[in-house]
């Protein structure tokens, strides 16, 4: 009797749907662009068959469009998943990589790599960005008063640390005017530099981070309870927090280092999935990763086609969608309270 009346807790329909949605979006994004390429030709190219594509079209497809779509998907998955994890860890639906200072810290780390260390983009940039991001998160914790503080003061100190990191970053840019333009366009968020090398390095770090986050996703349930309740259920909440925050920061830092500062993905995507599935974000983490990937591929499609042949920075597109969405959540939340 019990099995008939009690619905299963973990459902995979939404993950499956998000996966199918991602495949469709990727197919559309690869087809559409200044040069339209037939979907059948793309499938033939993927399967290594003979096609009627010219060498130029083939090169455009393999060297530009495929890596760009792949990088957008990776960055989208990283930002959406880390946003969802931060929201669970800090018990705050408005927490995202930007509000905790993680993205700004990663941005500063990457700026130091470009301006001071003159580092090559890959593989050192994600490492610099990760160090910057994790230092910013640690500083956020310390400024909040003690290692584990309440979510409210943690977010406030995250905003302060983020502002400080951004100020240092601006100072460094001004002192290094020779690299001002590339750093500036990178900050606005762009995927135009995507190539297979960036995809490989981003995939390595992001898959490690997402693998860790997905493996602890179920135990993140414990972080939604008080520390006493989590402890009584056999979980050391601080240990799980450290693992989750480090992995989410690695994902954020990698995304920031390959695509610049693309905001709001970590807020918009987890909330859409939460509303659709009516599940806590950690219970739909894979669906969030897949939908985040699709969301950014779509945003990038908009960035490169809306005013074609010119491009809009992708960060501007996500901000256009994300800022009103953020205000909507803020308003709904204060109404509920």
């Amino acid at each position: 009797m019990s099995e008939i009346q009690l619905k299963p807790i973990w459902r995979w329909q939404w993950t499956l749907m998000a996966g199918i949605f991602l495949l469709i979006v990727c197919a559309v994004a690869i087809t559409i662009g200044p040069v339209q390429i037939n979907a059948i030709e793309i499938i033939h190219t993927l399967l290594g068959r003979e096609t009627s594509l010219s060498d130029q079209e083939r090169s455009l497809l393999i060297e530009i469009r495929f890596p760009r779509v792949a990088l957008a998907a990776l960055v989208g998955a990283a930002l959406a998943t880390s946003g969802a994890v931060y929201q669970t860890v800090f018990r705050n639906p408005l927490a995202d990589p930007y509000l905790l200072g993680a993205a700004a810290g990663a941005g500063l780390g990457a700026t130091i790599a470009i301006t001071v260390a003159r580092a090559d983009f890959y593989p050192s940039l994600p490492i610099f960005a990760f160090i910057g991001g994790i230092l910013a998160v640690i500083a956020t914790f310390l400024v909040a008063g003690r290692l584990y503080s309440d979510p409210g003061s943690l977010l406030l100190s995250g905003i302060a640390i983020g502002s400080f990191a951004t100020a240092v970053q601006t100072f460094l840019q001004q002192r290094n005017s020779d690299v001002l333009r590339p750093v500036y366009s990178w900050i606005l968020g762009e995927l135009t530099v995507a190539d297979w090398s960036s995809v490989r390095w981003a995939a390595l770090y992001i898959f490690i981070a997402l693998g860790i986050l997905l493996s602890v996703s179920k135990i993140l349930d414990a972080l939604m309870l008080s520390d006493e309740e989590a402890f009584s259920l056999g979980v050391s909440p601080n240990r799980i927090r450290i693992i989750a925050v480090c992995a989410a920061t690695l994902a954020t830092a990698t995304a920031v280092s390959v695509s610049g500062l693309i905001g709001f993905v970590g807020i918009v995507v987890p909330h859409i999935i939460k509303r659709l599935t009516k599940k806590a974000t950690n219970r739909a983490l894979l669906a969030i990763a897949l939908f985040g990937a699709a969301f950014l591929v779509l945003a990038d499609l908009g960035a490169r086609t809306l005013i074609s042949p010119a491009e809009i920075p992708i960060g501007v597109i996500t901000a256009f969608i994300g800022a009103p969405f953020f205000l909507f959540i803020l308003r709904t939340r204060s109404k509920n309270q």
Binding site: R91, P93, D221, M224, L225, S226, E228, E229, F231, S232, K274, K278, K279, A280, T281, R283
Partner: peptide, 11 residues
């Protein structure tokens, strides 16, 4: 442990 003031999770 049954707390007096539990942390009630969303979703």
């Amino acid at each position: 442990y049954v707390p007096q003031r539990p942390q009630v999770p969303l979703g």
